[in-house]
Amino acid sequence: MSLSVLRRSETVIALVLLAAMLLIGLINPAFWNLANLFSLARSNVVIGIMALGVLTVMISGGIDVSFPAFAVAAMYLTVRAMVAWDWQGVAGPFVMATAIGLALGLINAAFVYGLRMIPLIVTLGTGSLVRGFLLGVVGTSQVNIDRMPKSLIAFGSTELTSLSDPAGGHFALSAMLLIYLAMALLVHFLLTHTMLGRGIYALGSDGEAARRVGFDRRLTIFVVYALAGALAGFAGLLHGAMIWLANPRDFNGLELDVIAAVVLGGASIFGGRGSVLGTMLGVFMLVMVSNSLIIMHIATTWQRVVVGFIVIIATAATSWRDRRRIA
């Protein structure tokens, strides 16, 4: 029993994470400052919510590289609409952003299911299309804080706790963390406690077997890509609310980071494996390492190299694990 806990991917990732935290703390004890930890936690929210969608796609055996484009499109279109109509809401705009992401996700699903095309190629195409549309047709100018809807700014800066450090500075734990946790719980419930979730795992493990047992391939694929799109759209607007501006060029290259985090969290790109807890740990690991380079006195130009090594080590480890399990 105790051995099986040790053998779980999540335990391994948690241990690695702990070791990394101790190491970073040794190099610079400032890592353990509450202000730093709070800001780390805050940086998890947007990437984490996107990662939940990518995780679901990956468990089903697919991949999605279009979600950053969907996220930025949902965010920018919603904010521009709010500015144009002088619309001061919170729930409405988030519904709109989520719906935009969902609709775009359905396009992915239609191509992947209807035309049986490799998801990577499909999502490369839709991503480029959406980004091109946003920047070429909608506009390139960013909505700055002075024109950003007040309701969004107020929502994005909601705090759970508010503390002051001795120097008089102010730091707080963002309430957005609760949203992230709620989403994570929802996706966890979907994956582990519903027939639909079983179907997603089944499709990723063995599509043919899943079909024969009676899982609906079409439903599963549509749910998976729509969910990834919807989560991306939601996370996009949340990002805008948290940084108080809407930049149509945001999230460029984010797909690599998020996929890296999900793989780091133990999901297999061949499908059938992965968990919400593992993904959250993977996201935390990636965010922590890239945010802590400065604390560790390493030039930020190294960030991409570090992320690259993390991707390769994580994938080598999972492919080694999967091969041993098959053997």
Binding site: R304, I310, A316
Partner: peptide
Amino acid sequence: VLIARLRITPILATIGSGQIFTGAALV
């Protein structure tokens, strides 16, 4: 080596190595 020998999926292996090459260029 990553793809043929270590059997890492080509997508992930080249995403990772691409980050390293670009990162090295940046450094």
